[in-house]
Design a protein around this nucleic acid. Structure first.
Lengths: 142, 142
DNA sequence: ATCGAATTGTTTGATTATCAAACTATTTGG
DNA sequence: CCAAATAGTTTGATAATCAAACAATTCGAT
């Protein structure tokens, strides 16, 4: 049982360090573009999951709808996104990326793929596949 | 080469999802205590790496020293940390956790170990070891 | 069909986090 | 010994956030 505790400690240690490194990598990538972190996060979500209404965007961003209103105002002012009235519910808006917003998303996505590529080349093909399977299992259960 | 691209895409996909889940797990743990995220982050760093001066803390938090001054003021007011004059440099303060701060850190650390334990039990012992090795390799190279 | 309750998004008012730049006190190096 | 560098604080401005009140619309029970 002491053995299991040790494994747990070690896993936590590596996870926290990994998380820290990933976080600061993400910040530096975003700041190297001329984009604020919060805007970049919204663009990332819209690019990844596609158009959605304010409520869903707020939920995915983990902020209130009020704050999301401000964020989307900013994105519209910057030319990255637009509000479109929802067809079947006139209370609701669908937020979608403009062409410029899509370009910004693709630029960001390229950075992500570069990182993934670097990781894959460090691990080699077999370990990369194993890593993907492990992450998949964790994502399903956590 | 198309094969490699696909692997990269898949790895990125899983990494981003994992990162998202870990982030919202962390937020919910912190908010379940009555702690602000930024304070919790400082306490985590002080608990993990031990006492350090303002500059190092600022650097590890990824914020300016000015902002760190405010953060440490808050921690002192809340009874979680204290400033101690550095022995050999009277410009400098060493920031350390109080007993209450240490308890808060240990509480947070327990949550982390629980998550690590959950992950370990989902993966089983062999995959957990593999996962740790992989994370280790990535942390060394990224 | 209608009306009260629920839902969607916005506004408002307050608070907090943040930065850059100016500042103070101290140390360091030539 | 003094100029430059360094550690931390203060200041003034801005951005991000929340909770609560609000308006417009939809839903559901009767």
């Amino acid at each position: 049982m002491e053995e299991k505790d040790h494994l747990r400690e070690e896993l936590n240690e590596k996870l926290v360090e990994f998380f820290d490194r990933f976080t600061s990598w993400e910040s530096s990538v975003i700041e190297s573009g001329n984009m604020k972190i919060s805007d970049a996060h919204a663009i990332e979500i819209l690019g990844h999951h596609g158009r959605m209404n304010m409520k869903e965007l707020a939920c995915r961003l983990g902020i209130t709808t009020g704050t999301t209103t401000m964020a989307v105002d900013r994105l519209e002012r910057g030319g990255f996104a637009r509000r479109v009235r929802a067809e079947h519910d006139r209370r609701s808006y669908i937020i979608e990326l403009t062409e410029e917003g899509t370009l910004a998303y693709e630029e960001h996505h390229r950075h992500h793929l570069n990182l993934a590529g670097e990781i894959a080349s460090v691990l080699g093909e077999d370990d990369t596949r194993t890593f993907i399977e492990i992450l998949q299992k964790i994502n399903e259960h956590i």
